[in-house]
Write a protein that binds this DNA or RNA. Structure first.
Length: 415
RNA sequence: GCGAUCGUAGCUCAGUUGGUUAGAGCGCCGGUUUGUGGUACCGGAGGUCGGGAGUUCGAGCCUCCUCGAUCGCCCCA
C-alpha cells in the first residue's frame, strides 16, 4: 500500500454516479452536435509549444505558468493541450481545411493545466468544444449560442444558468478601449488591489471582472466598450443579439465580461451559474478573428466555445435510472453452458443482461439485487424436467418489468 | 503562486486535559435461519492513525517539514 504510486495531483478517477453523469454529458453533446450538423474531429493531445504560446498569448497565465511543457527525446518543446482552439486552428491551417469553410467542428476530451485544484477545477480536466471556422458573419455566433443553449436545456440545467454576453469590438475598437482603460486605472493605481495593479500591466481588461471591492468602486466608472465601438462592430453585435432574440435564447448584457486570452474579438460570452462556488462559468467562448494569423495562417474569422464536462456533470447530478436489466444465474455448474447461451441470446437482441457467477446461489442473488436487476433468470440443466428457465421478478409492483419479461420470453422463444 | 480548514480500517466517522493490546456503523469473507433474494443472528479478515523528523518517561492526540484533499484568492470551461 505505502509503496503504491499515488494518482497525480489534480487528476481524477471517475466512477459510479459521477462517471454516469460524465458520460451523459458527453452523449448529450454528441446528439446535439449532430442535430446542428457539426462535424466530429479528433485532435492530438499534445502540440508544439508554440502552437499555444503564439495564439493564446505569452503573457497570459495559461501560457506563462500553467502549461505542461516538456522536451521530447528530439529536444523539441511540446505541450499538453491547455485548450482546444489553438490546436484546431493549427490543424485547419496545416490540413488545408479552408476548402471546407465555413467549417463547423466539434470535439471533446482531456485538457491539462497546472493550476491549484479545487471544486470544478482539475489539472487534467475535460471539455466539450464547438467551433465555426471561416465564417465572419454574426449568424455563426448565433448558431453556436443557440446550440449551447439547447445543449444546456437538454441536460436539464438551463434554469440555473444564464448567458452573459458582451462584445470586445473589432481589433481597433478593442485596442482603443484598452488604452483608455489603462489610462483610467493608472490614475487611481494606488487604490487598486494588488492583483489589479499587476493586471494593469499584463491584462488590464481583467480588472473589470475583479471580485475585490477596492476595484469594483472604480470599475463602475470605467470607460465602456460601447463608446469605442466602430459602426461596423456595433452592427455586428446588434445582429448577434437580434439573432438570439429571434431564436428565443435569453441573454444578459455584461459590460464587464472579458476574455483572458488574447485572440478574442467581437462576441464574448459565458454561461454562468451560482451553484458551483467560485467556478461559475460552465460554458464560455467568443470570436477569435485574429488567431489564425498569429499562427502564420491566412486571416480567417472564427467563433467557438468550450464547456467544462466536470462542471456540467456536477450540475446534472444523478442521471435518471437505467433501463431494467436481466441477471442470469446458473442454478448449478451443469447449467453454465446454457446460461452463457442465454446471455448471448438476450444481448444480441438488445436486452441488457448481466451474469452472476460468483459464490453460492444465495450470494449470487444478493449481488444481483445490489446490481439493481429487475429480473432474475435462473437457468437449469438442459434436461431438467421443470424446464430450462425460472423467472423471478425483482420489482415490488411489477408493471414495467412485465415488458422486460415479455421481451426476454420472446428472445428465448418461450411462452 | 497566496490564504484557511482537514487527512484514523474499503466507505462514513468516534477516539475524552498526550498514558496499558486504536473503536463503531456500513461494506467485505464464512456460517446459521430463510419460501432460491432484499430479514435476523453468530463468527472472521482488515489500520505501522497520509509520510518524515522532533518534543516527552510515553503521541492518533503537541511542534516543524512534506504529500494530498477541500473551500476561497488568482486563473479559467
Amino acid at each position: 500500500m505505502s509503496n503504491t504510486p499515488k494518482a497525480i495531483r489534480g487528476t481524477q478517477d471517475i466512477f459510479g454516479a459521477e462517471a454516469e453523469a460524465f458520460a451523459h454529458v458527453v452523449e448529450t453533446f454528441e446528439r446535439v452536435r449532430k442535430l446542428y450538423r457539426f462535424r466530429r474531429i479528433e485532435m492530438p493531445v499534445f502540440e508544439k509549444t508554440e502552437v499555444f504560446s503564439r495564439s493564446i498569448g505569452e503573457t497570459t497565465d495559461v501560457v506563462s505558468k500553467e502549461m505542461y511543457s516538456f522536451l521530447d527525446r528530439g529536444d523539441e518543446s511540446l505541450t499538453l493541450r491547455p485548450e482546444f482552439t489553438a490546436g484546431i486552428a493549427r490543424a485547419y491551417i496545416t490540413n488545408g481545411w479552408q476548402q471546407h469553410a465555413p467549417l463547423k467542428v466539434a470535439t471533446h476530451g482531456p485538457l491539462f493545466r497546472y493550476e491549484r485544484p479545487q471544486k470544478g477545477r482539475y489539472r487534467q480536466f475535460h471539455q466539450l468544444d464547438a467551433e465555426i471556422i471561416g465564417a465572419a458573419e454574426p449568424q455563426a455566433d448565433v448558431e453556436l449560442l443557440v446550440m449551447a443553449d439547447q445543449l444546456l436545456k437538454e441536460l436539464g440545467i438551463a434554469d440555473g444558468v444564464t448567458l452573459m454576453l458582451n462584445t470586445l469590438g473589432d481589433g481597433a475598437s478593442r485596442d482603443a478601449w484598452r488604452a483608455s482603460l489603462v489610462e483610467y486605472f493608472r490614475a487611481v493605481q494606488g487604490d487598486l488591489s494588488e492583483d489589479s495593479q499587476e493586471r494593469l500591466e499584463r491584462n488590464p481588461l481583467r480588472i473589470l471582472d475583479s471580485k475585490d471591492p477596492r476595484d469594483q468602486a472604480f470599475v463602475a466608472g470605467a470607460p465602456k466598450i460601447d463608446d469605442f465601438l466602430s459602426g461596423e462592430a456595433q452592427d455586428f453585435f446588434g445582429a448577434v443579439t437580434s439573432g438570439l432574440d429571434a431564436a428565443g435564447v435569453a441573454w444578459t448584457r455584461s459590460q464587464s465580461l472579458v476574455r483572458g486570452l488574447d485572440y478574442y474579438r467581437h462576441t464574448a460570452f459565458e454561461f454562468v451559474t451560482d451553484r458551483l462556488g467560485a467556478q461559475g462559468t460552465v460554458l464560455g467562448g467568443g470570436r477569435y478573428d485574429g488567431l489564425m494569423e498569429s499562427l502564420g495562417g491566412p486571416a480567417t474569422p472564427a467563433v467557438g466555445w468550450a464547456a467544462g464536462i466536470e462542471r456540467l456533470a456536477m450540475l446534472v447530478g444523478e442521471v435518471g435510472p437505467q433501463d431494467g436489466h436481466v441477471v442470469v444465474i446458473a442454478e448449478n455448474s451443469g447449467a453454465e453452458a446454457a446460461a452463457l447461451r442465454t446471455l448471448k441470446q438476450l444481448r444480441s437482441v438488445g436486452i441488457p443482461a448481466n451474469a452472476s457467477f460468483k459464490g453460492n446461489p444465495k450470494r449470487r442473488i444478493e449481488v444481483a439485487t445490489k446490481d439493481g436487476a429487475s429480473l432474475l433468470l435462473f437457468v437449469r440443466d438442459d434436461d431438467d424436467p421443470r424446464g430450462l428457465y425460472n423467472f423471478r421478478s425483482m420489482l415490488r409492483e411489477g408493471n414495467s418489468d412485465d415488458l422486460l419479461a415479455m421481451r426476454v420470453r420472446a428472445a428465448l422463444g418461450i411462452e
